[in-house]
Each structure stands twice: as structure tokens, then as C-alpha cells.
Amino acid sequence: MVLITLVSSDEQNFPVERELLKQSGTIETLIVNMNLDDEDTDAAAMPIPLPNVKGDVLEKVIQWMEHHKGDPVKEGDNEDNNAEIVVPQWDDDFFKPAMYGSKHLELTVAASYLDIKNLLTLSCKAISNTFKGKTGPQIREEWGVPNEFTPEEEEAIRKENEWSE
């Protein structure tokens, strides 16, 4: 088992199985480009710095990748049936505790940065699930988004939305 060390922004080291990192487009590209798979290279001696990912977030990401080890990685964008993606129970429980806070946000941004498509998709889907069947003001309240509209503007947007359906 080959281990590769990832270094988070706060300089914590995370030795991770080579196999797991296939899920991350960014790291996979890096490994391939730098020939870290080459037997002669000492992979452990070449830690990969991830200056955009904090330790606790990276830990979460690795935890997620471990659970999803061996899942097929999607190729390219498939935007056909985005609305029908189902978030598995395990992932739901995994995301839920931090859903409305900035931890989930950081996880999602990290997924985007590390190009872990499945994680990004599920994480976004989990967020979008909280919007379903809610009105604008309800979403605003739930997520703590400040209201920038006057009542008239809000009414006009709502009417136009209904009309454009």
C-alpha cells in the first residue's frame, strides 16, 4: 500500500492511501504529472501541499473519500438529471451536523478545489435539498441571508417568478 502525504494549510500531515486520491482530480493530475507513481520515486518524501485546505476540513474530506473508496468517478459533466440525484443516508448524516455553518461550506469549497466530483455533487445536492418547497423568505431565514429587497421589489420578483413558470 503506497501512502502519499498531504499537507494542509495549517501544516498538518495526512498520510493517505494512493488509491483514495484517485477520487480527486486535482491531486490525481498532480501525481501523474510529477510521476509520483514511479517506483523509483520516494512518494512519501514528496508531500503534497494543499495551501487552500485547512486540517480539519482535509480530515473530513479524507474521511469521506475512505467511505466512498472504489466508487466510480464521473467523467465530465453530466447535467442531465441533476434534480434526480439522491443523497445516500450515510452522506446525509455526514453533512448534516455542519449543514448551515461554515464547515460545510469549507468542505464544499475544498471539494471544488480538489475536484472531487462526487463529493461536490452530493454536497451541493444536500444544500439544494434544504431549498426545496420553500419560499424565498424561508430560505433567507434558514440560511441567515440578509434581506436586500424592499417589500415592493420582493413582491414584483415573486409575481414575475410565478408568471414565468
Binding site: 461554515s102 461550506l105 464544499t108 471544488s112 461536490l120 431549498f131 441571508v145 436586500e148
Partner: peptide, 27 residues
């Protein structure tokens, strides 16, 4: 605080009606 790309990613997981509703949240 999300970059716009990720918000788009989130909205694209919605159905049409809900995505349109998101216009009501903020500018």
C-alpha cells in the same frame, strides 16, 4: 461566501420551480 460557481452548482441540482424561487432570496 460561496464562490458563484458553487452556487450555480447548487442551483443546478434543483428543479426549475425551486431554482426560479432562489431569485427571491437576495440580489
Amino acid at each position: 461566501e460561496f464562490p458563484c460557481e458553487i452556487l450555480v452548482e447548487i442551483f443546478s441540482k434543483l428543479d426549475r420551480t425551486s431554482a426560479v424561487k432562489c431569485r427571491e432570496v437576495c440580489s
